[in-house]
Nucleic acid binder design. Structure first.
Length: 826
RNA sequence: GCCCCGGUAGCCCAACGGCAGAGGCAGCGGUCUCAAACUCCGUACGGUGUGGGUUCAAAUCCCACCCGGGGCACCA
């Protein structure tokens, strides 16, 4: 890889090369983890603060303890859990994809549609396990809001917004025999239509809400739901399933009993894991109600068109009959059946008014409050693998996590003979995973002095996920060999500090000036890295509040691929085209199109291109074929065009036979000089905007003009050649440098400033105006640059072609756009 | 199902609401040559996915639809 980067002349700085698996790197990953672990999020100040300040706040009473008791009344264990409950890295029980047959937890992407492992086809179970988790949800608002301040492609921002998934609504409390059951809803105004409730099979109140006669059915349903994977559970093409708990809750607005059901279409991970079902206004609830014969009262009057477009008789007031409806009514309509003694929604037409009236009522009666909910979940941060950063955490005699001091970093991985995960009986969903690090007892069991004398501890045997190192590596590039800091603060400020110096005048976030990467990182790496960076910013370790100020997503290189009649890909390089068909070893093959890669056998390696055409041609071809952000096809036979271009450049400067210079000191023609300045002006703008394709087109245009003039006057004017080579240098550095030396320069072209256009030469003395009649071009006028509108108009009307075309008619309207064109409307 | 991006010449792609063409590939004609390749010069081809709308003027703005690519997906 390094060899390939180097031979293509890519500006890769080996002195700033880092490896996230190097202990000198991951020592700082562990250090940052400790900063996260030893901090908490202050909701009032909206920032992370050191954990000591939480303890001080508890102690002096400025921060309420979780159960409200004074700090000095809490014992050691209570104090500890009061603090641990607020840490930004914390241990939690979370359901994961557990595959005993492989001995590891799998990502959702590694589980097949029928709930088995992608590799080995072993059963996968949903299992709740104690896992390290990062409290990224506390940053949801800031991660969302600060997107506005970043120079990122809008689609990527949108993907992050959708992923964070902010929605405004309300929490509503329904009384049940087992205590309040709280739901999250975005439509509190529809509460009068709530006729049943659905809770997730994992909801903590399931047992308490289940009556004895329904216990077996509920239990069976929960087991079945647990065996399903996420794919099955969220497959909305399947018919809804569910079981009644036997218990009724009370609708707070009208006192109606509402049955509580358990169904797996409600997810524990979103909202409160419980919903109020309003079947008349929500298609899922409507389907569920129809399936289980639950009532569907109407609470909004659908408009006339809603009925007519469904070929129903229009229903009004008491005649509204949902039993005739083919589907739920989702939209704005006048509220009906939505009033109680002190809340009247009936007659309102605005959902916004309905919501605010309902929210006020709920607050006043203590049955709910407005609430903002996010789709974003806290980040599961442990993995049961060998390769990964060990946590700088040990467990004490109470099995509680204790952070190691900086002086004990790095915590190195132990040497193991076998570092594969421990496989178990494929159907053993009871035994916990045994991470590879558990195998080294001497590594795992340690005696340490953490300030209160030598004691026995047990190391954390999970490791961090692969994202950990990439959450901050961009900072290490700034200062890769620093042994005292992960990055020197002054160095960070120099490279990544906000443009306004941090005084907030421009709102600039600071961060990497330009980050080029694929769109596949839109929500994982780019969200995790922003999260860590913001913690480091809050704690004062960096001056930038975002890691990547400007982001650019380059497109993929795609290529044709070919399959034989059996559907197997065949090597694209050996396919021949004959008579419009494609042939491989005498067999006709079919052509398709996809991302260049091994599986489609359509790879063209940089080395092949380097050997055949050279690095500069290869670079130009890649950049010229289309916009950087666009995925586009690779077509080897098009590469020749860029090679010819470079050969033409060469021949304009060097005589091929004798090798002598063809550059002359005589001035260029006025025309060529003007063209050159126009090209300089355009190329500068193109380069700034990363439009390399149009920059290259302009360079070709300039060189083509130079070719003509060179042939005419017997040499290439130096005043054109020099800027042209300067502009070629960033695109094709090797040939540019060679020609630069041949022009007699002792220095390197790389450090010569980019040419600047002479603005006075960008203005033409005469302008050619197209003259349109009713939008169609009929003739062209050449008009002096300084001609005013009236002059141009007079010239246009006096033109003989115009007179002929008008044929005596008088134009109704004459539009003259100075510098552009003339349009006559008749 | 919802959302995003794109659709211009045989192909890859340009075009501040203002003459559809910057550039490259392929093609054709010429130039060179004994011939060819290379070179150089010249050149045809489309009216911008479809249908409406706004405008003096639409590839460009708006609406609907079609096709291709991508994201999210029972999110309450």
């Amino acid at each position: 890889m390094r060899r390939q980067l180097r031979r293509l002349g890519l500006g890769h700085d080996a002195r700033r090369s880092v490896s996230t698996t190097d202990e000198n790197f991951y020592r700082w990953t562990q250090w940052i983890f400790l900063k996260v672990f030893n901090s908490w999020y202050d909701e009032e100040q909206k920032r992370a603060r050191p954990i000591d300040e939480l303890e001080q706040g508890y102690a002096n009473g400025s921060i309420a303890t979780p159960d409200g008791r004074p700090w000095n009344e809490l014992n050691k264990t209570d104090r500890r859990s009061a603090i641990d409950a607020r840490r930004l890295a914390y241990l939690s029980e979370a359901p994961v994809n557990w595959c005993p047959g492989l001995g590891t937890i799998l990502a959702n992407e590694e589980v097949t549609a029928d709930g088995r492992s992608d590799i080995g086809n072993y059963p996968v179970f949903k299992k709740s396990m104690r896992q390290w988790t990062m409290r990224i949800t506390t940053y949801a608002d800031r991660l969302l809001d600060d997107l506005e301040r970043l120079d990122w492609p809008e689609p990527i921002k949108l993907m992050q917004r959708n992923w964070i998934g902010r929605s405004e609504g309300a929490r509503v409390h329904f009384a049940t025999p087992a205590g309040d059951l709280t739901v999250f809803t975005t439509r509190p105004d529809t509460l009068f239509g709530a006729t049943f409730m659905v809770i997730s099979p994992e909801h903590p109140l399931v047992d308490a809400l289940t009556t004895d006669e329904n216990r077996q059915a509920i239990q069976d349903y929960r087991v079945a739901a647990a065996a399903k994977n996420q794919f099955d559970r969220t497959d909305d093409t399947k018919e809804k399933t569910g079981v009644f708990t036997g218990t009724y809750a009370t609708n707070p607005v009208n006192g109606a009993p509402v049955p509580v059901w358990v169904a797996d279409y409600v997810l524990m991970g979103y909202g409160t894991g419980a919903i109020m079902a309003v079947p008349c206004g929500d298609q899922r609830d409507f389907d569920f109600a129809r399936r289980f014969n639950l009532p569907i009262p109407a609470i909004q009057q659908p408009p006339v068109e809603w009925f007519t477009s469904r070929e129903l008789e229009v229903q009004h007031g008491s005649r509204v009959d949902t039993s005739t409806w083919p589907e739920a009514f989702v939209g704005d309509g006048v509220y009906i059946n939505s009033s109680n003694d002190d809340l009247q929604l009936d007659g309102l037409t605005s959902v916004a008014e309905g919501k605010s009236a309902m929210n006020a009522w709920l607050e006043a009666h203590g049955r709910g409050n407005t609430n903002i909910n996010f789709k974003l979940r806290d980040w599961l941060f442990s993995r049961q693998r060998y390769w990964g950063e060990p946590f700088p955490i040990v467990y004490d005699e109470d099995d509680q996590p204790v952070s190691l001091p900086d002086s004990m970093l790095p915590v190195l991985l132990p040497e193991l003979e076998d570092f594969k995960p421990q496989a178990l009986d494929p159907n053993d969903d009871v035994t916990d995973p045994i991470p590879p690090l558990a195998r080294s007892t001497e590594w795992r069991e340690v005696v340490l002095d953490l300030g209160d004398g030598p004691k026995k501890y047990r190391r954390e045997i999970n490791v961090m996920p692969q994202w950990a190192g990439s959450c901050w590596y961009e900072l290490r590039y700034l200062d890769p060999t620093n042994t005292d800091h992960f990055v020197d603060p002054a160095v960070e400020k120099y490279w990544m500090g906000p443009a306004d110096g941090g005084d907030g005048t421009t709102g600039h976030t600071g961060g990497v000036d330009l980050y080029v990467g694929g769109v596949e990182h839109a929500v994982l790496h780019l969200l995790y890295a922003r999260f860590w960076h913001k913690i480091l910013f809050d704690l004062g370790h960096v001056s930038s509040s975002e890691p990547f100020y400007r982001l650019f997503n380059q497109g993929y290189v795609q290529a044709f691929a070919f399959r034989d009649p059996r559907g197997q890909p065949v090597p694209a390089s050996d396919v021949e085209e004959r008579d419009g068909s494609y042939w491989y070893e005498g067999e006709k093959v079919s052509r398709e199109y996809g991302k260049m890669g091994k599986s489609l056998k359509n790879i063209v390696t940089p080395d092949e291109m380097y050997d055949e055409y050279g690095a500069d041609t290869f670079r130009l071809y890649e950049m010229s074929s289309g916009p950087l952000e666009a995925s586009r096809p690779w077509n080897t036979r098009d590469v020749i065009g860029m090679q010819r271009f470079l050969q033409r450049v060469w021949r304009n400067l060097v005589d091929e036979d004798s090798g002598r210079s063809l550059v002359i000191d005589a001035p260029a023609s006025e025309e060529l000089r003007k063209l050159m300045h126009r090209m300089i002006d355009g190329i500068r703008a193109d380069m700034d905007a990363l439009r390399f394709n149009t920059a290259i087109a302009k360079l070709i245009q300039l060189n083509n003009a130079l070719t003509q003039e060179s042939a005419a006057v017997g040499g290439s004017p130096r005043e054109v050649v020099v800027p042209m080579i300067q502009m070629l240098s960033p695109l094709c550095p090797h040939i540019a440098e060679e020609l630069w030396q041949r022009l007699g320069h002792a220095n390197t072209v790389t450090f010569v400033p980019f040419p600047v256009a002479d603005q006075s030469l960008l203005v033409e003395e005469t302008i050619e105006y197209p003259v349109q009649i009713n939008g169609k071009v009929r003739t062209r006028l050449t008009v002096p640059n300084e001609a005013d509108q009236a002059t141009i108009q007079a010239l246009a009307l006096a033109d003989e072609k115009v007179i002929a075309a008008l044929d005596g008619e008088v134009p109704k309207k004459i539009i003259v756009i100075p510098g552009r064109m003339v349009n006559l409307v008749v």
